[in-house]
């Protein structure tokens, strides 16, 4: 007699865990996988070379310790300059981003020509890396933090204007309609209804931009655009790895401080 507690095996009736791909999807998956493998090959990835390099890595790290704090006053002053560059670049970039964002927001732009022009400028400045902008400004205004500030301003413009425009497009149309109905001008609608609605998102984006600018300002010095980067490069070039370790730790401390402060401000403001 059959055991009544025993259930029949119905596994064959279960639906597939994943939908079976059709021929076209399967071909695409294989093509994407082949492309990724090809990229790995082109990047000259080699596990054996990496393993051979591990002792050198260990030697470099051991030479970095203990960090040398002898020139901490000079490194501290340069770190401060680096952060000041980041703040000024962010402030200028954010200020420039607002008019660009208004022109690049589909529901705020005066006309389509202005929209496409603003979008084009934003896309261009965003796609060119900050280091390239730094080289450009070092050539045009000379060595020093001013070139770095200009590079950071342009980089922040590309980053913020796009997100500002998107938050303006997402702003509740109700208050805008109310101001239109009472005879407000376009500037009144933007200042009175659009910017207040987009403000939380814009503040969050600006704080992200400050974090990004702080990280960028560290490397801009490598091409002579001011900041701590030039100190790091000099220390590395002179095999002064103990001082390089001090600089790297200072950079780490600054970036973490800015990120934590920015996260706390975002949580409070939004």
């Amino acid at each position: 007699m059959a055991d009544p507690t025993r259930q029949p095996d119905r596994r064959r009736e279960l639906p597939d865990r994943l939908p079976r791909p059709d021929a076209l999807s399967f071909t695409l998956y294989v093509a994407v996988a082949a492309f990724v493998i090809w990229c790995f090959q082109a990047a000259e990835m080699s596990v054996s070379t990496f393993i051979e390099g591990v002792p050198s890595m260990g030697r470099l790290v051991s030479e970095m310790f203990p960090p040398a704090f002898g020139r901490m006053d000079s490194i501290g002053a340069t770190m401060l300059e680096t952060f000041q560059m980041a703040v000024v670049g962010t402030v200028l970039g954010v200020a420039l981003s607002i008019p660009f964002a208004v022109m690049a927001a589909r529901n705020q732009t005066p006309n389509r020509a202005v929209y496409y022009l603003a979008r084009g400028v934003i896309t261009f400045v965003r796609t060119v890396p900050d280091l390239i902008w730094a080289i450009f400004f070092v050539i045009t205004v000379g060595l020093g933090p001013f070139a770095g500030v200009l590079a950071l301003t342009v980089d922040t413009l590309g980053f913020c204007a796009r997100f500002f425009a998107e938050s303006m497009e997402e702003a509740d149309p109700g208050p805008q309609e109310a101001l239109t109905a009472l005879g407000a001008r376009r500037s009144g609608i933007v200042l009175g209804a659009v910017l207040p609605a987009a403000m939380p998102s814009m503040v969050a984006t600006s704080l992200f931009a400050l974090e990004k600018a702080t990280r960028s300002s560290v490397v801009l010095g490598l091409v002579g655009a001011g900041g701590i980067g030039i100190e790091l490069k000099a220390a590395m070039d002179m095999f002064d790895y103990n001082e390089a370790a001090t600089i790297i730790l200072s950079i780490f401390a600054l970036v973490v401080l800015v990120e934590r402060t920015s996260a706390a401000l975002r949580a409070r403001l939004i």
Partner: peptide, 9 residues
């Protein structure tokens, strides 16, 4: 308006 349409912030 029905939904007031004040500027919230």
């Amino acid at each position: 308006f029905q939904r007031h349409n004040l500027v919230p912030r």
